[in-house]
Nucleic acid binder design. Structure first.
Length: 426
RNA sequence: GGAGAGGUGGCCGAGUGGUUGAAGGCGGCGGCCUCGAAAGCCGUUGUAUCGCUUGCGGUACCGCGAGUUCGAAUCUCGCCCUCUCCGCCA
């Protein structure tokens, strides 16, 4: 959430930043509501002060067994007026909050200005896309031949955009989860957490998924339940410290969490319908950091490198893109996308998105830390480390052989009972 | 799902209509004492917001929301959450 004080004092800067994001927000209306609210609130507080003084007077008179009825009579109208003003303040407060919750995070100055994904900037590439002496197949073909990915039966069970993994397909998914968590906890210093896979609306508001992106979520249908399936472990993990004040010497706090992720994909009809690139449910290991404001951009660099290292260990070629102002997500101040090479699509595809949210989520979720007298908002950073389903896709497509079998990456073999390849079912 | 108990400051824990932002304790910070430390003693120690601004003052906050009242941590109603017992259950 944007700081209302910042909005008041940097109106034109903010207007420009939001324009670069292609966001149309009526900032003047916000300023107007804020001014009205403060005016009414001030008037109300003056009256309350008067009421408090009178109350003390009345208490004193009663103690002394004196008549207080004139004071009581006089305060009746003051009390009524306070109630009116209080209602007005509440109304203005609610409207102000509604509007503030819909204002995106202004992009950091280092973010390239651009209108859409074509303006994203390539930061670096790693590895060489492999050249095939045969026509490489995509993971759907490979998965069918190998008998490890069954989309037809998944559709029977749950509908489109689900996958049923079998045998080595299920096994490699589990192997990757363990591999990711082991690297991040043993080598990168993250603490493993296993969070709830459902979260309430306060939590989703904290991370910025609500109120604006309700349609992207699956809500639990039970009557009266305020619960949603999490779209990413970022939601429960970021909310671990909601409404808490941390100590400076605890920071940075680094969590790695496995969770399934549930997304309605409401806005993506007809997009990536083939295979397991875009599913209603997928596994992911998420990295989440809580940092001081001055260290957050450095910590974003580190977190991105931590995610990249997984691809390096799996020897999968990738590139890192900085998202431009027009492509960056609602809550993020800066985002790097890591895109893995997929021979089946002859393209780089996103496998991790690493963002610095600055104090945007911390303000919404009220996550602070203390150094000196005043508590300050922390900065939050998170990124995939990595999306598991898409890693399966990348491994199958990059490690496929002419006979339809798939070699298992060296780093993964200890997690697969030493197996070296996945062979077609006979 | 049924029955009961309870939600107060960083933590524990008093308070049951009127100097209560809230006793007391713990913890934190500063000081005294000491060669140093511990113990002991003294002092200090919430958050948010508004207004004049080295500082000071106002207002709000005792799970959340509504109500009664001149005045609510305290009384009434609704909701949420936690704990204990029973039932069901991986």
């Amino acid at each position: 959430m944007i700081d209302i004080k910042y909005l008041r004092e940097n109106l034109e800067t903010l207007r420009e930043a939001l324009a670069q994001r292609n966001a149309s927000i009526d900032l003047d209306a916000v300023v107007q509501i804020d001014a009205t609210r403060r005016g009414v609130q001030h008037e109300m507080e003056q009256l309350r002060a008067e009421q408090n003084r009178a109350s003390e007077e009345i208490a004193r008179l009663k103690r002394d067994k004196q008549d207080a009825s004139p004071q009581l009579e006089a305060m009746k109208s003051v009390s009524a007026r306070i109630k009116e003003l209080d209602d007005a303040v509440r109304t203005a407060d609610a409207e102000l909050e509604d509007r503030l919750l819909l204002i995106p995070n202004p992009p950091d100055a280092s973010v390239p200005v651009g209108k859409d994904e074509t303006d994203n900037r390539e930061e670096r590439t790693w590895g060489e896309p492999r050249t095939f002496d045969f026509e490489p197949r995509d993971h759907v073909d490979l998965g069918a031949t190998l008998g490890i990915l069954d989309f037809e039966r998944a559709a029977k069970i749950a509908g489109s955009r689900f996958c049923l993994s079998r045998g080595a397909g299920a096994r490699i998914e589990r192997a990757l989860i363990n591999f990711f968590l082991d690297i991040h906890t043993r080598e990168h210093g993250y603490e493993e957490v296993l969070p709830p896979f459902m979260a309430n609306s306060d939590s989703l508001r904290g991370t910025g998924n609500l109120p604006k992106f309700k349609d992207d979520l699956f809500a639990i249908a039970n009557e009266g339940k305020d619960l949603f399936l999490i779209p990413t472990a970022e939601v429960p993990v970021t909310n671990i410290f909601r409404d808490e004040i941390l100590r400076e010497d605890e920071l940075p706090i680094k969590f790695a969490a496995y969770s399934p992720c549930f997304r309605s994909e409401a806005g993506s009809y007809g997009k990536d319908t083939r295979g397991m690139i875009r599913q209603h449910q997928f596994n992911k290991v998420e990295l989440v950091k809580f940092t001081t404001p001055e260290s957050s951009f450095e910590e974003l660099e580190n977190l991105t490198r931590d995610a990249e290292r997984i691809l390096q260990r799996l020897e999968l070629p990738y590139r890192v893109m900085t998202l431009c102002t027009g492509d960056i997500a609602f809550a993020a101040a800066k985002t790097y996308d890591i895109e893995v090479w997929l021979p089946g699509q002859n393209a780089y595809r996103e496998i991790s998105s690493c963002s610095n949210y600055s104090d945007f989520q911390a303000r919404r979720a009220n996550i602070r830390f203390r150094r000196g007298k005043k508590p300050e908002f922390v900065h939050t950073i998170n990124g995939s480390g990595l999306a598991v389903g898409r890693t399966v896709v990348a491994v199958l497509e990059n490690y496929q052989q002419a006979d339809g079998s798939v070699t298992i990456p060296q780093a993964l073999r200890p997690y697969m009972d030493g197996a070296e390849r996945i062979a077609p079912r006979t």
